[in-house]
Design a protein around this nucleic acid. Sequence first.
DNA 1: TCTAACCTTTACGTTAACGAGAGATTTATA
DNA 2: TATAAATCTCTCGTTAACGTAAAGGTTAGA
Lengths: 133, 133
Amino acid sequence: MGVTARTIRYYEEFGLLGAGAVRVRGAHRLYTEADVARLRELIRLRDLLGVSLEELKQLVEAEEARALLRERWRATDSSEQQRLILEQGLVHVEAQLALVRKRQQALAQLERELVKKRQRLRARLRTLGGQDG
Amino acid sequence: MGVTARTIRYYEEFGLLGAGAVRVRGAHRLYTEADVARLRELIRLRDLLGVSLEELKQLVEAEEARALLRERWRATDSSEQQRLILEQGLVHVEAQLALVRKRQQALAQLERELVKKRQRLRARLRTLGGQDG
DNA sequence: TCTAACCTTTACGTTAACGAGAGATTTATA
DNA sequence: TATAAATCTCTCGTTAACGTAAAGGTTAGA
């Protein structure tokens, strides 16, 4: 995954990982596939969007709060509450989408400029080539 | 530009900025429009691509090396050397483009996943709405 | 059961990237 | 030319995000 064991332990210590793990102190850490996917996702957000661990933590906490609600209302759920939970999830996803798209636009702008630069260089190379190539 | 004065001085101290500035020690720093554009570009690369100051420095140094060559052969230029310089510039621009596009693809992947998530949430909201909304 | 290989905890170290403050200096302006 | 406001240099501090080393504990396999 491109990170060291120390990083994973640090993330756990920081509160990003292993929120629901039952483990005897001193025993080996065991991870489910879901845990792995979760970490991979966090690292992706960190690398792609440049969010800090602190921000990731808030994000994780918000997710856990929603998961908690889901559990609490799974049995007794009025569809009123279900709707609320789904809508919260939607808000969350849309916030992330907005972030991603903002960054995409900035990157697209950068890309356009680079392409232009490349075109100019190529054009100059062609005129040069016409002279003595 | 979203950075403090301290940051700018630090970048200079680090070797990113003010490479060709003639300034009496103690006097105020003066910046040309080109300087401003340069800094803005560096910050953009830092924020969008997440490159470290160390990497930015190497990038800057490569640019300066090419600029130096341009000067050295501006007078005496054989179009042989001109071609070489242009081709180096092309390599440089294409390397940056590759980086940008790699990141774009990663972001696009992330976006697709988020959109899917959103669709699922919306679908579930609709089925809910059909029941009692 | 014993061992080799790996893991855990704890504590301190490190590095990048600035922040903050003091005291001297510079510069625009009245 | 006097003065206020902004800058300069220098130095030490800080924070995030791990790295590293030591000492002991776990675990799978022979």
